[in-house]
Nucleic acid binder design. Sequence first.
RNA 1: GGCCCCAUCGUCUAGUGGCCUAGGACACCACCCUCUCAAGGUGGCGGCACGGGUUCGAAUCCCGUUGGGGCUGCCA
Length: 455
Amino acid sequence: MTRVRFAPSPTGYLHVGGGSTALANWMFARQQGGEYLLRIEDTDTERNRPELTDNILEMLNWLGLEWDGEPIHQSDRSELYAAAAERLVGSGHAYYCECTTEQVQARNKAAGGKPGYDGFCRDRGLGPGPGRALRFRAPDEGATSFTDLIRGDVSFNNEAIEDFVVLRSNGRPTFLLANIVDDADMQITHVLRGEEHLNGTPKYLLLSAALGLDYHPVFAHLPLLVNEQRKKLSKRRDDVSVADYKARGFLPEAMRNYLALLGWGPPDGVEVRPIEEMVQLFRIEDVNSAPALFDIKKLTHINSEWIRLLDAADFVARGSEFVTGEDERAALTALAPLAQERVKVLDELPGYFDWVQGPADDPKSWDKGMKMPLALEALDAIIAAYDDAPWERDELHARFIALAERLDLSPRKIDAPLRVAVTGRTVGLPLFDVFEYLGRDETLARLRAGRARLA
RNA sequence: GGCCCCAUCGUCUAGUGGCCUAGGACACCACCCUCUCAAGGUGGCGGCACGGGUUCGAAUCCCGUUGGGGCUGCCA
């Protein structure tokens, strides 16, 4: 049975790159009818923060990427790694090293600036002890190769692989050791991870062989997600927190839809569609190997499509989280479909209802909309025309059109003064729906107030 | 520096030797629709990095160049 895993490290919140990797694993597992497991790689005790695990799990859930079984924590499995390390020592595949990072760097600098461990302790026969790390004895010749589902055959000369640390001097395993031990133990059949791990794969394979593991997973290194500078997305400089996107009003449906489109495209070209369909169509072999730029503009567009796909009640429910104030929420509920087709991201919603308590205070809009003497004329005329009007949208619209005709003006010309008088803005929801919602008294009061302010 | 990966419109992609005068989507521009803004419709702009091969035929295969990226940590 196909078994994949997503293995985040709780040294940061879930970011879109992680989301993308998780999604690929999830889709692949779903499609193959296999299992998608979660493994928390918390071997770096200095940097781990438990609340980040919560964030990761929460965001994975938000994205709808439910995992099978209970998440595994590497911090619970120290014995496994210790045993593996022991085996490496026993078979001569690893040795203890007492060099500090500074010492290694200093020697490298003296030797001409080549990075990497120089093998200083390789044959010193050191035993375990404080301050001593365990290093893997990488072969000096030969090559390590593998076939990647996305990249084809990849080969590394062992000569270029340094003696890397598998056990820190504090006794905790490094990522390299824990990773292979757990994948083998969990019987992961397909390792789908970011391209940044491509160079680590020969180490993984070497370790596996040295451990005597009869374990041969299939690899697929997914394209990196990059920013405008074509650099790997970074938590420090890029806007990548999944939680932030959620907070801004991006829908999980849209987020995973967009993520699925990075590095891959459905053969029929239909981009906006349920993830279940993506799962059917997805083919890991067809994933591109070139890095993909995370484009918020396109994400935003896809989000707007998903917003428009929501049924009205759902839209109101989700939108309400972004609208504060009882009255504003009531207006949202009443005018939902009109807002729904305008908003691209849910956090734009408050801006569409800032007229509920009274016209928004926006001098720019006022100056732009209240052009004299047109504004005065329009307001006087509409106040008169609405005085005895049945208070219903279509009727208000009809009288507005008739008025424009009588004044021999284009309707669009007299829209602005009315809109600014009532809502304070030159743009917004369809005017006559707003008038109807506000009611005769309130609307006329605002029109008169606007007129008074002009005179 | 070393090793590895990558290269189709600005961006995401379709394309797996003839269906390509290279298709779609986002963005952008114009027009239509229209009470504003959206939505929608129509049209437009725009690309196979370069050079060699292989082949009757190459965006597709091979080599090189150039360019970009990743890794090079007792982070993952």
